[in-house]
Simulated scan of single mutants.
Amino acid sequence: MASTGKVAIVTGSATGLGATCAIDLAEKGWNIAINYTKSKKEADETYAAVTAKGVEAILVQANMGEDADCRRLAAETMKKWGRIDGLINNAGTTKFQAQGDLEGVTPEDFDIIFRVNVTGPYMMSRAVYPAMKKQWEEKQERGSIVHVSSIAGVMGIGSSIPYGCSKGALNTLTLALARQLAPAVRVNTICPGFIQTRWLLGGLGEENYNKLKESQEQSAPLRQAGTTEQMAEAALFFLTSASNITGEFLIVDAGTHLGMLPMKPR
């Protein structure tokens, strides 16, 4: 598809959900700023997949926990295209904590996780806001920001306590930014449940990952374990379609938040 001229930044887009969002947006004709911290090889692969869709892309190595890097990512995007229409704040981090092991995370873990998962999306939103505000004032073209939160921020579950707390804070940040950046920018959030990703597999280990995946497929109301494609579909709905929606959270977890159903017989 030929480029529409629209531009999006997708943080943490070398792998997983971020990569899927970047590729799916490219399929819709958006030019993409691909961001990575360490995964250069995977970022190159995402770049190739994005540009194969007939659009333009740039690769920017930047740490989303550093304000200077956030501002540089926005600046390099503006230098390339002169506009920013969308931002998906996907980059995140965690530390895996065993159930009941309160000594398993430290105050420093809280600092790092909140820095990337909460302060990072704030800094990135702040970095792109001037461009989006200018487009609104000059062309009545409204920007769109989507945060990638988690069901952990709604239910207090997940890989660790600080991770769940950070995602709850990110949900609150969504409300605050939706108020403060209106009417120039819409701000919304998706809250994924289980997603089949290398990141989760690496954190849980193969045995625990497979057990959790099977549990989702057997007892989640929709009887399925989420994919990056399903999560990206929700993120792109907010980014590209939901023109009259701001300040909303969308839980995307196969209905897990409703309560697990009895396991299906084998």
Rank of each mutant, 00 (worst) to 15 (best):
T174F: 01
A152G: 07
L239N: 11
C191P: 04
M124I: 00
K213W: 08
C165A: 15
G54Q: 10
I251S: 06
E56C: 10
G193L: 01
S39C: 10
A91S: 05
F110R: 12
T46Q: 02
E108H: 09
G164W: 05
A49D: 12
L236E: 03
F114A: 08
T174R: 02
C165Q: 15
S149L: 05
A169V: 12
T46N: 01
H257Q: 13
R198I: 12
F249T: 10
A74H: 01
Q140N: 14
S243Q: 14
A220R: 03
Y129I: 07
D67F: 09
E229I: 13
V105T: 11
I251E: 01
S160V: 04
E66K: 13
I9K: 00
P192L: 04
N171Y: 06
D24V: 11
G16Y: 03
N90P: 09
R198D: 15
A19M: 12
K264Q: 15
L258T: 12
G193V: 00
P183S: 11
D69K: 07
L261Q: 10
L204R: 10
A152Q: 04
V10H: 02
Y122G: 09
A178Q: 05
K133N: 13
V154G: 10
V128P: 03
L200M: 11
M1L: 15
I58G: 02
G5K: 07
G259P: 06
E42R: 02
P162S: 10
G164D: 05
S39E: 14
V105K: 03
I23A: 12
G100E: 08
K213T: 10
G203W: 07
L258K: 09
D44R: 11
P221L: 05
